[in-house]
Amino acid sequence: MVIDIQTFMLALGVGNVAFALLMACYMHGAERSLALRDWMWARLACGLGECAWWIAPRMGSHVFEVFALGVWIGGVLLEVAAYCRFFGFRSLWRLMPVPIGIAIVTIGCALFAGASRTQMTAVVGGLIAVYTFNASVVLLDLRKKRTLLERIIGVNDVLYALAIGIWLVVEKGANAGGTTVIGGLAYLASYLLMIVTGFGFLLMCKQRDDRQMQRMATIDSLTDALNRRAFFERAESARQLTLRLRKPLALLMLDLDHFKQLNDNFGHACGDQALRLFADTARGVLRDPDLLGRLGGEEFALALPGTPLEGALQAAERLRVTLSQAVIDCAPTYRMSVSIGLVMVEPNEELTAALARADHALYAAKTGGRNRVEVGPAIFKSA
């Protein structure tokens, strides 16, 4: 496999610049992603540095070669910064001067030792391999929940690091010049790295944006409970599943007592804190399959799949007692309480009808003194 290193550097540089332009077009008019912005500038810097490295022999200037190397490795470090920003590694972001310093010292020592152009290419390639391998460790961390796309990019990073490592060890990174099979494979790995990580990072950002949009469409932003539409959809799915499995389904309507007084006396910000506290308390006493939804204002609903009446009563009482012991920071003298209406969904009963019965039970709990659980009567149908 014969590959001219100069031609390859030009192709690599043009490819990276093209990626940067594509990303700029993608981000135009869209919500700005700081990680994607960093990645775009990283691709542009890498591309310009590689193109400058290709032009350097024609310029006949050693200073231009140093400039090209600096821009090239700077682009690689910007990629590291983009990963740190994407995954929220603020502590690693603060440590960015360390890899920058390592790169400067390494390149400076190579230049001082009079390394040839091919040797300098190997030095930069080695630095890129080290930083790429570090990125693969993050992407392939089994302790973290990563998407399949992130895993694929991580594997690609490992393969690149291995290819460059083998090239440096076997060929010494000196006189290979891309004219051997190993050198050719190293360059091919570099090109694959550009393509996979270039498109991959863009898709990673899009995946995250899609997840955020989906979350905004289903989750109440204040309490992290399901919003009204999402609760109805998932509760209906739970109703159909429990009907097929011949399992019970408990449905509860909940309303915070004297919530208007809390807002009037302590402010709406304090009311928001109370709603968040209630949702957190509810999640703390419920099971994973249970569904919590905010229907509006201080009104919530619960669906407890597979829970009989006795179990639902125990869960409701546990929530009521736990909430009565909770303290709101902004209103320490205020004692929270909740009124709960509970019904068991009858076979073939529509969800809206069951919710209406639970709402009637909630009204009975309110008129009966509040801070209590009221069980709605069952529906008796003649044969």
Rank of each mutant, 00 (worst) to 15 (best):
V98M: 08
P99K: 01
I102C: 10
A103D: 04
I104A: 15
I104M: 14
V105I: 14
T106L: 01
T106F: 00
I107Q: 14
I107E: 08
I107H: 14
C109R: 07
C109F: 12
C109N: 08
A110H: 05
L111E: 13
A113F: 13
A113G: 07
G114K: 04
G114F: 02
S116W: 05
S116M: 04
S116D: 12
S116R: 05
T118G: 15
Q119T: 09
Q119N: 10
M120T: 15
M120P: 06
M120G: 04
M120R: 15
T121M: 15
A122V: 05
V123S: 03
V123E: 03
V124I: 15
V124M: 06
G125K: 03
G125V: 05
G125I: 07
G126H: 02
G126N: 02
L127G: 00
L127R: 01
L127N: 01
L127S: 01
I128V: 14
I128P: 00
Y131I: 00
T132K: 00
F133M: 02
S136F: 05
V137C: 14
V138I: 14
V138Y: 12
L139Y: 03
L140R: 04
L140Y: 08
L142I: 10
L142S: 13
R146H: 02
R146G: 00
R146Y: 00
L148K: 02
L149V: 00
R151Y: 08
R151G: 02
R151P: 02
I152Q: 00
I153F: 01
N156G: 13
D157G: 13
D157N: 15
D157E: 11
Y160K: 05
A161N: 06
A161R: 05
A161H: 05
A163N: 11
I164H: 03
I164P: 03
W167A: 09
W167K: 07
L168E: 03
L168W: 04
V169R: 09
V170E: 08
G173R: 04
N175I: 04
N175V: 08
A176P: 13
A176G: 15
G177I: 08
G178N: 10
G183Q: 03
G184M: 06
G184P: 08
L185Y: 04
L185T: 10
A186R: 14
A186C: 15
A186Q: 11
A186I: 12
A186D: 10
L188K: 07
L188D: 14
L188Q: 14
S190L: 11
Y191C: 08
Y191S: 11
L192A: 15
L193F: 04
M194Y: 13
M194F: 10
T197M: 12
G198A: 05
G198N: 05
F199V: 14
F201T: 01
F201N: 02
L202S: 10
L203G: 01
M204R: 01
C205G: 13
K206P: 03
Q207M: 09
Q207R: 06
Q207D: 13
D209Q: 09
D210E: 15
D210M: 10
D210L: 14
R211I: 10
Q212R: 12
Q214K: 12
Q214Y: 07
Q214N: 12
A217N: 09
T218Y: 05
T218S: 12
L222T: 09
L222S: 11
T223I: 06
T223Q: 08
D224G: 10
